[in-house]
Simulated assay, not measured.
Amino acid sequence: MIRAAHIADLGSQPLLRLEAYWLEKRGSRAMPSRADIDPADIKELLPQIIMARIEHDPLRVKYSIVGTACARSAGFDYTGRYLDELAFDSESDTDWQEIYREIVREKKPIGGTCRFRTADVEIPYRVAVFPLSNDGIRVDHTIAYEHLTLSLTEMDHVLPVKPAR
């Protein structure tokens, strides 16, 4: 991932919309809680939303919601699966485990540009991941938006997510 200093630097209206929603729900706290997030509030973003639960000791990421567009890009719906159980062969430059470790450590959103690889080409896409905390201290969930649009031809050449070996 090539990091952006600010979500606004990514030039994505959906990412700005999610950031504004996260800031609104956060209020004066460090982070909003998972209970603060109402999918009905951001229904226009849902196809490209990914929500995850963060488990600690050891750190594990379990996907609780994978939007339909994200599942289609991945080649299957990985809702209910752990990140460490999956091989994202379509990701050529992003260490998602490290992104989540950083979010847990820093308690701040991370945004940037990633590269999605199909069998034929690499396509840049923009993404932002926002921390959520039920106790206001420990990150225990995240909400993310992947701004990726694939053509029908590109969809035919997606490298599907598969179980890690």
Rank of each mutant, 00 (worst) to 15 (best):
S12P: 00
W96C: 06
V104Y: 02
V127Y: 11
R101A: 14
H56M: 03
F88K: 06
V121H: 10
D38P: 05
I37F: 12
R53H: 13
R26V: 02
R17S: 11
D156P: 01
A74F: 08
A128M: 01
L159T: 09
T142M: 09
P32R: 10
E91S: 15
E102Y: 06
W22C: 04
R165G: 14
I42V: 15
I7C: 02
T149E: 15
V121W: 04
E122L: 03
L16A: 05
W96G: 03
G75P: 01
Y78L: 06
A30T: 09
V66E: 07
E122V: 10
Y82S: 04
V121M: 01
V129M: 12
P124V: 01
T142Q: 06
H141L: 06
F88Q: 04
E106Q: 13
G75W: 05
E122M: 00
M1I: 15
D95W: 00
G11W: 11
I54M: 08
I137S: 14
C70K: 04
G111K: 00
F76V: 12
M1D: 00
I54G: 00
G67W: 06
L18T: 00
W22F: 07
Y63V: 01
A119D: 11
N134M: 09
R115P: 03
D156L: 15
L23A: 07
V66S: 02
K108W: 10
G80D: 04
I54L: 07
H157V: 00
M31A: 10
A8W: 08
L45M: 05
F130G: 03
S12K: 03
A87Q: 13
R60G: 02
V139D: 08
I7H: 04
I99D: 03
R60Q: 07
R105A: 15
Y82E: 11
D36I: 13
A52K: 07
R126V: 08
V104A: 12
V158H: 06
L16I: 08
A8M: 09
K108R: 13
S12Y: 06
R105M: 12
I49Y: 08
M31C: 10
P32S: 07
A8H: 13
K62I: 11
P131G: 07
P131I: 05
R29H: 11
A20S: 14
D77N: 14
R53N: 03
D89G: 15
R29S: 12
E85W: 07
S90C: 15
D89K: 13
W96I: 03
S73G: 14
I99V: 15
L150A: 04
I137P: 03
P58I: 03
A144I: 08
L150F: 08
I143G: 04
I137A: 15
G75C: 05
V127K: 13
E55T: 03
K25I: 04
Q48A: 15
A164F: 14
Q48T: 06
P39L: 14
L46G: 04
T142P: 07
S73T: 07
P109Y: 04
A4P: 09
T118I: 02
V66D: 05
P39A: 12
R105C: 02
A4Q: 06
